[in-house]
Nucleic acid binder design. Structure first.
Length: 181
DNA sequence: GGTGCGATTGCA
DNA sequence: GCAATCGCACCA
């Protein structure tokens, strides 16, 4: 069952936590569908969150974050890696969830946001793409119980001061595709 | 119009 | 430990 619009129109922290265990689905141009369960994600809040791209307001790059939840926000980092985000909440809130790691049914895992987008063939052409459309969507998968969810500080945002220490990273405890910490 | 750097990764 | 590599945020 596909996750529908209401799933995305909630607090970004709730969406992030609930995305664990869900199945990321990507239909390639040729028709093949790739699938993988999410095991590591990070919540980026809107105004106020110094680690978030939306912290300094609307720009050409982060514009999708300001849209209503239910679409993708894809950007290029370090000039070579794409990062895939799920936009959440209502229009103007500018929140999103960064997808950092997934595991495929066959056991093949993509650990790290750059490796995840490479594994699922996601690039800027999917920026603003609907998550209720034919190319990229999420399915119910197998929700993770609270006892198996661990919260930590987000990765790679040391520049954000106190915000870098907020526990906004959600991971499946002891999962091999997730680094310690 | 010029400049500095990043929500990372892979290799020495 | 560090280079790769470029879109874009920010300043002039």
């Amino acid at each position: 069952m596909r996750l529908e619009k209401p799933f995305y129109l909630r607090d970004v922290r709730d969406v992030a936590r609930d995305l664990l265990g869900r199945e990321l689905c990507r239909r390639l141009p040729g028709g093949v569908v790739l699938r993988g369960r999410l095991v590591e994600v990070e919540a980026y809040l809107g105004a106020g969150d110094r680690a978030s791209h939306s912290f300094r307001g609307l720009t050409p790059r982060n514009a999708p974050m300001f849209e209503e939840g239910g679409i993708a926000y894809v950007y290029l980092v370090y000039g070579m890696h794409h990062c895939l985000n799920v936009v959440t909440s209502s229009r103007g809130d500018a929140c999103a969830v960064l997808l950092r790691a997934a595991e495929s049914p066959n056991g093949v895992s993509a650990s790290g946001p750059g490796r995840l987008t490479r594994a699922f063939s996601v690039d800027r052409s999917l920026d603003r793409a609907s998550l209720l459309g034919p190319d990229l969507w999420l399915e119910e998968g197998e929700p993770i119980p609270d006892s198996a969810v661990r919260r930590t500080a987000r990765i790679g945002v040391d520049y954000a001061g106190a915000w870098s220490r907020r526990k906004l990273r959600f991971v499946v405890a002891r999962h091999p595709a997730v680094s310690a910490r």
